[in-house]
């Protein structure tokens, strides 16, 4: 019987110590809300769109990064498709890549990121991924992704 009591009291100790809180460490990620553009929106080469995102953190935001790249470097395009692309489309089309980063003034808990982004005239058409990355002061990171399509000028616009 004695053993059972020892066992139970040990469990109680474990439970108690497991619940003790840590001294002010921040493991909460910042949050990202992408306002514009919508997911799966369509654009044409030469268009300009506004990227607007609301970044919030429980403690303090630190920095952001925006990365736009063509879906061809995802894991879907095989060698064959790439060659076909290269063959069918003239060489003036360039895979468009956009990269921008910035830091956020210290002490900020909420930051509205606004970027006017111009799609180059020679941007290769297709699906693009837009990713927003945010860190807070403690080093917690969050990211959000949307997809948009860049289509030919003479293409029908289907909304």
């Amino acid at each position: 019987m004695k053993l059972k009591y020892i066992f139970l009291s040990l469990l109680a100790i474990v439970k108690f110590s497991a619940c003790s809180d840590d001294d002010n460490i921040d493991t909460t990620k910042p949050e990202i809300e992408i306002v514009t553009p919508d997911d799966d929106e369509h654009f044409h080469p030469g268009d300009t769109f506004e990227l607007r995102a609301i970044l919030t953190d429980n403690e303090e935001l630190a920095s952001w990064k925006v990365d736009i790249h063509h879906n061809s470097d995802g894991h879907t395009h095989s060698q064959v498709i790439r060659l076909k692309h290269g063959g069918e489309h003239s060489h003036e089309e360039e895979e468009w890549h956009f990269h921008k980063e910035g830091s956020i003034e210290s002490g900020t808990k909420q930051y509205v990121l606004i970027l006017e982004i111009e799609i180059p005239h020679d941007a290769e058409h297709g699906d693009y991924h837009l990713g927003i990355y945010v860190t807070d002061k403690a080093g917690n990171e969050n990211k959000a992704f949307i997809t948009f399509e860049v289509e030919d000028d003479h293409h029908e616009h289907h909304d």
Partner: peptide, 27 residues
């Protein structure tokens, strides 16, 4: 995790191997 952004596609911040004093205990 560090506060540096990586320029490589598909990545966010750079993670560096670091050394830190640490305590580990249990039962």
């Amino acid at each position: 995790p560090t506060a540096e952004w990586s320029h490589l596609p598909h990545t966010g911040q750079i993670y560096r191997y670091m050394e830190s004093k640490a305590l580990l205990g249990g039962m």
